[in-house]
Nucleic acid binder design. Structure first.
Lengths: 129, 129, 129, 129
DNA sequence: GTGGTCTAGACCACG
DNA sequence: GTGGTCTAGACCACT
């Protein structure tokens, strides 16, 4: 389920958080779903249990998952409310990067072309994701 | 000239590199200009000389500045050639965050509106800067 | 493993970089191999950790090694691609010193004899190494 | 007469020494010739007098020039003896670089080809120098 | 004065 | 344990 790139500079725990977030946004993980236990995921990914624990703590902090004592971690029922926040922050990131690009001398046309490339027709889009 | 945010998670030396890059892109720093000496900038920013040195080394590595023995650091005459690369990488960054945003469920309209905000008419832009 | 000459004019960190490069070229260090940790090498060579760090940063910049967060420095899997470049630059260096030698009045015979000495038969070569 | 590259990493005083050496080797500067005074050369090259002085001291140390009190610096009459040494050291440098190249995996053929390029026919050689 | 290298020792995030 | 960043202060070569 998760794909860890040990050579990447982004921390392993953050890779797990990001991928979980992506699964939530795309609906692959629905509220109420049980997350794998720390131990099992640790074995699956060949990653230190501490690292998994850290990822789960971060997910809990963001309101994505809720621990059920004695049962495990579950996708929070209120996860939908958080996803709006996530999208808003993504938009903020985009805005920041655009401002940087503009300061670097990128024209509106450059950016529009880039947007075009990303939001192209559905048929071509499907295999990209 | 430089603005250092000591609380930021991005390293001080990288902040200096980025800001220098921005000055170059906006034309504030022209080829042949002398950079502040390691020691003087160190005092100005209340930052250790080693940290400044690291920033300058990175700038030299990227081809933005050249040391003149016993004289100081100077903006490279060939800096123009590097800036194209910088712009290209900025565009790549934009593309990457756009893809992320799209995966997060942002619509093309959302993004277009964001682009509009950044590249809006001059009259409205003025008070932003 | 490494031999540092503290009296040499070539910086310690550069000696480490060069020797590592030599180990890579000769196949002593294969992709995936773990480099000694900054601290341990620092103790081994009686050199400040910062100096080792600088050497490792340079090696990373050249694409020879990759840091794995929390694990250590590892020889890059793509190191083979870089070695071709290294050989090319070595050849350039040779060309440069040959030109200098020629300008200094060295004859082709002088140089050929020198090449002979370096690339002599295996039996004679053995005791040189 | 001298060509100084301020942007070069090799020290200015060393550039002067090297070029003088080259002039001696090629016979442009003959024994007994008077070198320009420190002051005049300093003005000519827009270089600090201390730097010229350092170059001259180095040239004197190597036995290339002799100061004549009240007259100036003159190319030493015994310069011929030194030039043999210079050629010998050049050959040593070549040998060292060849060894490095061999360790880097360069074949004899690679090197021979390089030698060929440098020592090609006279007609083609002329415009290279 | 300049940049470049180095030591000594600290703190941080990551696993 | 790992690498990465930073401070404090030193020495060097070059101009």
């Amino acid at each position: 389920m998760f794909q860890i790139d040990a050579m990447s500079r982004v921390p392993v725990y953050e890779q797990i958080v990001e991928q979980t977030e992506r699964f939530l946004l795309s609906g692959v993980l629905a509220p109420g779903t049980k997350m794998p236990s720390v131990r099992s995921l640790s074995l699956d990914l060949s990653v230190n249990p501490n690292t998994i624990q850290k990822a789960y703590s971060e997910l809990e902090r963001r309101g994505f998952v809720k621990p059920v004592p004695g049962k495990g971690m579950f996708i929070s029922e209120q996860v939908g409310e958080c996803l709006g926040e996530v999208r808003k922050s993504k938009l903020e990131t985009i805005r920041a990067v655009l401002v940087q690009g503009k300061q670097a001398g990128l024209t509106r046309a450059d950016v529009e072309q880039c947007v075009d490339q990303v939001y192209r027709k559905y048929e071509e889009k499907r295999d990209e994701v």
